[in-house]
Simulated assay, not measured.
Amino acid sequence: MIVVTGATGNVGRALVGQLAAERIPVRALTRDPARAHLPEGVETARLDPTEPASLAPLFTGASGLFLNLQATGAGGEHTAALLEAARAGGVRHVVVLSSSIVGDGADETHPLYVAHAALEEAVREAGFDWTFLRPGAFAANSLQWAAQIRAGDTVRGPFADFAGNPIHEADIAAVALRSFLDDTHRGAAHRLTGPEPVTHEETIRAIGRAIGRDLRFVEIPPEEVTPDIFPHVPPAILPELLASFGEFVGRAPEITTTVETVTGSPARTFEQWARDHKDDFRG
Protein backbone atom coordinates (compact mmCIF):
# COMPACT_ATOMS: atom_id res chain seq x y z
CA MET A 1 0.00 0.00 0.00
CA ILE A 2 1.09 3.57 -0.79
CA VAL A 3 0.14 6.38 1.60
CA VAL A 4 -0.31 9.75 -0.11
CA THR A 5 -0.18 12.97 1.89
CA GLY A 6 -1.72 16.10 0.38
CA ALA A 7 -4.13 13.79 -1.40
CA THR A 8 -6.50 16.60 -2.42
CA GLY A 9 -3.74 18.87 -3.68
CA ASN A 10 -2.79 19.10 -7.34
CA VAL A 11 -0.06 16.46 -7.37
CA GLY A 12 -1.51 14.28 -4.62
CA ARG A 13 -4.91 14.04 -6.31
CA ALA A 14 -3.27 13.12 -9.63
CA LEU A 15 -1.12 10.47 -7.95
CA VAL A 16 -4.07 8.94 -6.10
CA GLY A 17 -5.93 8.69 -9.40
CA GLN A 18 -2.98 7.05 -11.15
CA LEU A 19 -2.42 4.56 -8.32
CA ALA A 20 -6.10 3.68 -8.32
CA ALA A 21 -6.06 3.20 -12.10
CA GLU A 22 -3.17 0.75 -11.67
CA ARG A 23 -5.14 -1.04 -8.94
CA ILE A 24 -2.41 -0.31 -6.42
CA PRO A 25 -3.78 -0.03 -2.87
CA VAL A 26 -3.64 3.59 -1.77
CA ARG A 27 -4.52 5.38 1.45
CA ALA A 28 -5.21 9.06 0.80
CA LEU A 29 -4.52 11.41 3.70
CA THR A 30 -6.31 14.73 3.90
CA ARG A 31 -7.50 17.10 6.57
CA ASP A 32 -11.16 16.62 5.56
CA PRO A 33 -11.89 13.16 4.08
CA ALA A 34 -15.60 13.97 3.72
CA ARG A 35 -14.79 16.62 1.11
CA ALA A 36 -12.01 14.73 -0.68
CA HIS A 37 -14.06 13.50 -3.68
CA LEU A 38 -11.44 10.94 -4.67
CA PRO A 39 -11.97 7.95 -6.99
CA GLU A 40 -14.37 5.26 -5.82
CA GLY A 41 -12.69 2.60 -3.75
CA VAL A 42 -9.83 4.79 -2.53
CA GLU A 43 -9.34 4.61 1.22
CA THR A 44 -9.27 8.06 2.78
CA ALA A 45 -8.17 9.04 6.27
CA ARG A 46 -7.80 12.25 8.22
CA LEU A 47 -4.29 13.58 8.76
CA ASP A 48 -3.72 16.01 11.59
CA PRO A 49 0.01 16.26 12.28
CA THR A 50 -0.71 18.16 15.51
CA GLU A 51 -2.15 14.95 17.00
CA PRO A 52 0.85 12.54 17.19
CA ALA A 53 -1.23 9.75 18.73
CA SER A 54 -3.42 9.66 15.61
CA LEU A 55 -0.56 9.11 13.19
CA ALA A 56 0.37 5.46 13.75
CA PRO A 57 -2.81 3.87 12.28
CA LEU A 58 -2.43 5.90 9.09
CA PHE A 59 0.61 3.87 8.03
CA THR A 60 -0.38 0.37 9.10
CA GLY A 61 0.32 -2.02 6.26
CA ALA A 62 2.00 0.62 4.08
CA SER A 63 5.27 0.13 2.22
CA GLY A 64 5.55 3.53 0.55
CA LEU A 65 4.85 7.15 1.44
CA PHE A 66 4.39 10.16 -0.83
CA LEU A 67 5.32 13.11 1.35
CA ASN A 68 4.76 16.80 0.74
CA LEU A 69 5.89 19.71 2.85
CA GLN A 70 2.43 20.72 4.07
CA ALA A 71 1.98 17.38 5.84
CA THR A 72 4.79 18.21 8.25
CA GLY A 73 3.39 21.45 9.66
CA ALA A 74 4.07 25.08 8.83
CA GLY A 75 7.68 24.91 9.98
CA GLY A 76 8.26 21.21 9.61
CA GLU A 77 7.81 20.79 13.35
CA HIS A 78 5.88 17.53 12.91
CA THR A 79 8.27 15.87 10.47
CA ALA A 80 9.98 13.62 13.01
CA ALA A 81 6.71 12.33 14.49
CA LEU A 82 5.23 11.64 11.08
CA LEU A 83 8.33 9.78 9.87
CA GLU A 84 8.50 7.77 13.09
CA ALA A 85 4.88 6.71 12.64
CA ALA A 86 5.54 5.83 9.00
CA ARG A 87 8.47 3.58 9.89
CA ALA A 88 6.49 1.88 12.65
CA GLY A 89 3.70 1.18 10.17
CA GLY A 90 6.04 -0.54 7.73
CA VAL A 91 6.99 2.23 5.30
CA ARG A 92 10.41 1.69 3.77
CA HIS A 93 10.40 4.01 0.75
CA VAL A 94 9.52 7.72 0.85
CA VAL A 95 9.00 9.77 -2.31
CA VAL A 96 9.35 13.43 -1.37
CA LEU A 97 7.73 16.25 -3.31
CA SER A 98 10.58 18.73 -3.02
CA SER A 99 11.55 21.67 -5.24
CA SER A 100 14.05 22.53 -7.95
CA ILE A 101 15.28 25.28 -5.68
CA VAL A 102 17.25 22.54 -3.91
CA GLY A 103 20.43 21.76 -5.83
CA ASP A 104 23.92 22.91 -6.69
CA GLY A 105 24.38 26.66 -6.63
CA ALA A 106 21.08 27.35 -4.88
CA ASP A 107 20.54 30.24 -2.52
CA GLU A 108 20.62 28.32 0.74
CA THR A 109 19.11 31.25 2.63
CA HIS A 110 15.90 31.25 0.57
CA PRO A 111 12.93 30.16 2.74
CA LEU A 112 11.77 27.59 0.17
CA TYR A 113 15.26 26.11 -0.01
CA VAL A 114 15.49 25.89 3.76
CA ALA A 115 12.14 24.14 4.11
CA HIS A 116 12.58 21.61 1.31
CA ALA A 117 16.23 20.85 2.06
CA ALA A 118 15.31 20.21 5.70
CA LEU A 119 12.57 17.80 4.67
CA GLU A 120 14.91 15.89 2.35
CA GLU A 121 17.55 15.67 5.07
CA ALA A 122 15.02 14.45 7.64
CA VAL A 123 14.00 11.60 5.35
CA ARG A 124 17.64 10.68 4.73
CA GLU A 125 18.51 10.74 8.42
CA ALA A 126 15.49 8.62 9.30
CA GLY A 127 16.99 5.80 7.26
CA PHE A 128 14.31 5.36 4.60
CA ASP A 129 14.94 4.50 0.99
CA TRP A 130 14.14 7.75 -0.74
CA THR A 131 13.39 9.43 -4.05
CA PHE A 132 13.32 13.22 -4.25
CA LEU A 133 11.17 14.92 -6.88
CA ARG A 134 12.40 18.44 -7.56
CA PRO A 135 9.95 20.09 -9.98
CA GLY A 136 10.35 23.57 -11.34
CA ALA A 137 7.31 25.80 -11.72
CA PHE A 138 3.95 24.07 -11.41
CA ALA A 139 1.68 24.76 -14.35
CA ALA A 140 -1.06 24.93 -11.71
CA ASN A 141 0.50 28.14 -10.39
CA SER A 142 -1.21 29.75 -13.37
CA LEU A 143 -4.48 29.44 -11.49
CA GLN A 144 -3.32 32.66 -9.83
CA TRP A 145 -4.63 34.44 -12.95
CA ALA A 146 -8.09 32.85 -12.74
CA ALA A 147 -9.85 35.69 -10.89
CA GLN A 148 -8.63 38.29 -13.39
CA ILE A 149 -9.56 36.08 -16.34
CA ARG A 150 -13.07 35.52 -15.02
CA ALA A 151 -13.43 39.29 -14.62
CA GLY A 152 -12.32 40.28 -18.11
CA ASP A 153 -9.95 39.81 -21.03
CA THR A 154 -7.02 41.77 -19.58
CA VAL A 155 -4.60 40.25 -17.09
CA ARG A 156 -2.19 42.50 -15.20
CA GLY A 157 1.11 41.17 -13.89
CA PRO A 158 4.88 41.70 -13.79
CA PHE A 159 7.57 40.61 -16.22
CA ALA A 160 5.68 39.62 -19.37
CA ASP A 161 8.85 38.08 -20.83
CA PHE A 162 9.80 36.01 -17.80
CA ALA A 163 10.00 32.39 -19.02
CA GLY A 164 9.26 29.52 -16.69
CA ASN A 165 9.34 25.76 -17.18
CA PRO A 166 5.81 24.83 -16.07
CA ILE A 167 5.14 21.16 -15.45
CA HIS A 168 1.74 19.46 -15.46
CA GLU A 169 0.90 17.96 -12.07
CA ALA A 170 -0.01 14.69 -13.80
CA ASP A 171 3.60 14.36 -14.97
CA ILE A 172 4.95 14.85 -11.45
CA ALA A 173 2.52 12.18 -10.28
CA ALA A 174 3.56 9.85 -13.10
CA VAL A 175 7.21 10.11 -12.06
CA ALA A 176 6.19 9.45 -8.44
CA LEU A 177 4.26 6.37 -9.55
CA ARG A 178 7.25 4.97 -11.46
CA SER A 179 9.48 5.74 -8.48
CA PHE A 180 7.33 3.49 -6.30
CA LEU A 181 7.18 0.71 -8.89
CA ASP A 182 10.82 0.66 -10.00
CA ASP A 183 13.55 0.24 -7.39
CA THR A 184 16.14 1.88 -9.66
CA HIS A 185 14.72 5.26 -8.63
CA ARG A 186 15.65 4.77 -4.99
CA GLY A 187 18.36 7.24 -4.09
CA ALA A 188 17.57 9.45 -7.09
CA ALA A 189 16.86 13.19 -7.04
CA HIS A 190 14.79 13.89 -10.16
CA ARG A 191 14.69 17.43 -11.54
CA LEU A 192 11.38 17.81 -13.34
CA THR A 193 10.21 20.45 -15.79
CA GLY A 194 7.74 20.89 -18.58
CA PRO A 195 8.96 20.35 -22.15
CA GLU A 196 9.47 23.98 -23.15
CA PRO A 197 9.87 27.52 -21.81
CA VAL A 198 6.65 29.52 -21.42
CA THR A 199 6.55 33.25 -20.66
CA HIS A 200 3.90 34.95 -18.57
CA GLU A 201 2.45 36.48 -21.73
CA GLU A 202 2.39 33.09 -23.51
CA THR A 203 0.72 31.57 -20.47
CA ILE A 204 -2.21 33.97 -20.72
CA ARG A 205 -2.57 33.51 -24.47
CA ALA A 206 -2.56 29.71 -24.07
CA ILE A 207 -5.30 29.90 -21.45
CA GLY A 208 -7.24 32.18 -23.77
CA ARG A 209 -7.04 29.62 -26.58
CA ALA A 210 -8.20 26.88 -24.20
CA ILE A 211 -11.32 28.81 -23.17
CA GLY A 212 -12.01 30.41 -26.54
CA ARG A 213 -11.20 34.01 -25.61
CA ASP A 214 -8.65 36.58 -26.76
CA LEU A 215 -6.82 37.32 -23.52
CA ARG A 216 -4.18 40.03 -23.21
CA PHE A 217 -1.35 40.35 -20.68
CA VAL A 218 -0.54 43.88 -19.52
CA GLU A 219 2.81 44.24 -17.79
CA ILE A 220 2.96 46.29 -14.60
CA PRO A 221 6.02 47.34 -12.57
CA PRO A 222 6.93 44.90 -9.77
CA GLU A 223 6.38 47.62 -7.18
CA GLU A 224 2.70 47.70 -8.19
CA VAL A 225 2.22 43.97 -7.60
CA THR A 226 -0.12 43.19 -4.71
CA PRO A 227 -0.43 39.82 -2.92
CA ASP A 228 -3.76 39.05 -4.60
CA ILE A 229 -1.96 38.69 -7.94
CA PHE A 230 0.05 35.77 -6.52
CA PRO A 231 -2.39 34.25 -4.02
CA HIS A 232 -0.48 30.94 -3.80
CA VAL A 233 2.66 32.73 -2.58
CA PRO A 234 3.04 33.59 1.13
CA PRO A 235 3.21 37.41 1.32
CA ALA A 236 6.53 37.27 3.17
CA ILE A 237 8.11 35.43 0.24
CA LEU A 238 6.57 37.55 -2.53
CA PRO A 239 9.36 40.19 -2.66
CA GLU A 240 11.97 37.45 -3.13
CA LEU A 241 9.87 35.80 -5.82
CA LEU A 242 9.55 39.06 -7.74
CA ALA A 243 13.27 39.69 -7.40
CA SER A 244 14.02 36.24 -8.81
CA PHE A 245 11.62 36.83 -11.72
CA GLY A 246 13.40 40.08 -12.53
CA GLU A 247 16.80 38.43 -12.32
CA PHE A 248 15.83 35.70 -14.79
CA VAL A 249 14.03 37.80 -17.40
CA GLY A 250 15.77 37.10 -20.68
CA ARG A 251 17.34 33.86 -19.45
CA ALA A 252 16.32 30.46 -20.73
CA PRO A 253 14.95 28.29 -17.92
CA GLU A 254 16.21 24.81 -17.18
CA ILE A 255 14.42 22.21 -19.31
CA THR A 256 14.89 18.54 -18.49
CA THR A 257 13.76 15.35 -20.23
CA THR A 258 13.37 13.48 -16.95
CA VAL A 259 9.61 12.97 -17.30
CA GLU A 260 10.03 11.15 -20.61
CA THR A 261 13.08 9.22 -19.41
CA VAL A 262 11.28 7.93 -16.32
CA THR A 263 7.76 7.41 -17.68
CA GLY A 264 8.37 6.70 -21.37
CA SER A 265 5.99 9.51 -22.38
CA PRO A 266 6.88 13.11 -23.26
CA ALA A 267 6.07 15.74 -20.68
CA ARG A 268 2.71 17.41 -21.27
CA THR A 269 2.83 20.92 -22.73
CA PHE A 270 1.36 23.97 -21.04
CA GLU A 271 -1.23 24.07 -23.83
CA GLN A 272 -2.36 20.62 -22.68
CA TRP A 273 -2.50 21.76 -19.05
CA ALA A 274 -4.63 24.77 -20.05
CA ARG A 275 -7.07 22.54 -21.92
CA ASP A 276 -7.26 20.15 -18.95
CA HIS A 277 -8.07 23.07 -16.63
CA LYS A 278 -10.22 25.27 -18.86
CA ASP A 279 -13.19 25.01 -16.51
CA ASP A 280 -11.10 26.56 -13.71
CA PHE A 281 -10.89 29.81 -15.68
CA ARG A 282 -14.52 30.09 -16.64
CA GLY A 283 -16.86 32.12 -14.52
Rank of each mutant, 00 (worst) to 15 (best):
I2G: 09
T5I: 11
G9E: 15
G9C: 14
N10C: 08
G12M: 15
V16G: 01
L19Q: 08
P25M: 11
A28W: 05
L29G: 04
R31H: 10
P39G: 03
E40M: 10
E43N: 04
A45E: 05
A45M: 08
A45T: 06
R46F: 05
P52W: 04
P52C: 05
A53S: 12
A56E: 13
P57S: 06
P57D: 08
S63G: 14
G64H: 02
F66A: 01
N68K: 06
N68G: 12
Q70D: 13
G73H: 12
G76F: 15
L82A: 00
A85N: 13
R87G: 11
R92N: 06
R92P: 02
L97K: 00
I101G: 05
V102H: 05
V102Y: 04
A106V: 11
T109S: 15
V114I: 14
V114F: 01
V114R: 14
H116C: 10
A117N: 15
R124D: 14
R124N: 04
E125M: 13
G127L: 10
A139P: 03
A140H: 10
L143E: 12
L143F: 10
A146Y: 07
R150F: 02
T154S: 10
T154E: 11
V155M: 04
V155E: 05
R156C: 03
G157W: 08
A160G: 12
F162T: 11
H168D: 14
D171K: 08
I172H: 08
I172K: 11
F180W: 15
G187T: 09
G187C: 13
H190Y: 13
L192K: 00
G194Y: 00
E196D: 07
T199P: 00
I204S: 06
R205D: 08
R205L: 03
V218S: 09
E219Y: 03
I220A: 05
I220V: 11
P221K: 01
P221E: 08
E224N: 09
P227H: 07
F230H: 08
P231V: 09
H232G: 02
V233E: 01
V233G: 03
V233I: 15
P235L: 10
P239S: 06
L241T: 11
L241F: 15
A243M: 03
S244N: 04
V249T: 08
T257F: 12
T257S: 13
T263E: 02
S265N: 13
R268G: 01
T269Q: 00
E271C: 03
W273D: 00
R275Y: 05
D280K: 15
G283H: 06
